[in-house]
Amino acid sequence: MLHAVLKAATEGETTNPLLPAPYDIWWSAVCFVIILFFFWRYALPKMQQMLDERGAAIEGNIEKADEAQRQAEAALEQYTAQLAEARVEAGKIRETAREDGKQIVAEARENASAEATRITVSAQAQIEAERQSAIVSLRSEVGTLALDLASGVIGESLKDDAKASSVVDRFLADLEADQAKAAGAK
């Protein structure tokens, strides 16, 4: 290039060194058109096809994501409904358990009350039987002691059983009547 500048300076022509020669422009334009033709004919359709495939894949993925989102929302709604149903069922079970517990407690109280009443009645019957047994035993012992004491005081033997029994029974009846009057006066 330095030679071209020197040559141009020596010849005295006034050409602009920044502008290329017309033949360079012509051949550059021909090369550009050829490259443009091959690019337009072969490269651009392949790029367009690749972009279309990518666009379709992206749209397919978006549709899949939308479908997955819808399925997730449906599953969430179903899960929420099942959870609400389970909570209602758990509440019913708790309420039933409370009612059963109250019923069991009431039955236990009734059974305990019946058992206590039965035990009380049995104990009273046993006490009454023991009392009657003690009265009979005491009557015979008191009668024997009273006869022995009366025999000692009177100095005679009171061994006649029928007569002795009637005296002892009359004596005890008088004692019980005196006790009944004393209890009634209080």
Rank of each mutant, 00 (worst) to 15 (best):
13 E>L: 12
37 F>L: 07
21 A>K: 12
96 T>G: 00
34 I>Q: 11
185 A>W: 08
80 T>R: 15
49 Q>G: 04
135 I>P: 00
76 L>S: 14
22 P>G: 04
41 R>A: 05
185 A>M: 11
113 S>W: 13
172 L>C: 04
136 V>Q: 09
155 G>A: 02
78 Q>M: 07
147 L>T: 00
152 G>W: 10
121 V>M: 13
92 K>F: 10
8 A>K: 05
28 S>E: 11
158 L>H: 11
84 A>Y: 06
114 A>N: 14
121 V>K: 15
52 D>N: 06
74 A>C: 03
26 W>T: 10
138 L>M: 07
80 T>S: 10
26 W>H: 13
40 W>S: 14
81 A>E: 12
92 K>M: 07
11 E>S: 12
155 G>H: 03
131 R>E: 04
127 I>R: 11
15 T>P: 01
95 E>M: 05
171 F>W: 10
98 R>C: 01
93 I>Q: 15
138 L>P: 00
161 D>H: 12
1 M>D: 07
147 L>M: 14
15 T>W: 14
144 T>S: 15
77 E>A: 08
81 A>F: 04
24 D>L: 08
19 L>H: 14
32 F>R: 08
123 A>Y: 15
129 A>K: 11
104 I>N: 13
92 K>S: 05
53 E>C: 02
58 I>F: 02
83 L>P: 05
156 E>P: 01
90 A>W: 03
60 G>R: 01
69 Q>T: 04
151 S>N: 03
154 I>H: 08
98 R>A: 04
103 Q>H: 08
172 L>W: 03
186 K>H: 11
24 D>V: 08
25 I>S: 05
137 S>E: 06
52 D>W: 03
165 S>M: 04
147 L>G: 02
30 V>S: 07
82 Q>Y: 07
72 A>R: 13
129 A>M: 06
20 P>Q: 12
129 A>E: 09
49 Q>M: 04
138 L>E: 11
88 V>L: 11
30 V>L: 15
29 A>Q: 14
67 E>Q: 08
99 E>S: 10
97 A>K: 14
42 Y>T: 04
108 A>T: 12
102 K>Q: 14
9 A>T: 08
90 A>F: 06
61 N>R: 01
54 R>W: 00
43 A>C: 05
118 R>Q: 15
13 E>T: 12
164 A>Q: 02
53 E>N: 02
33 V>R: 10
31 C>E: 12
50 M>L: 09
97 A>M: 11
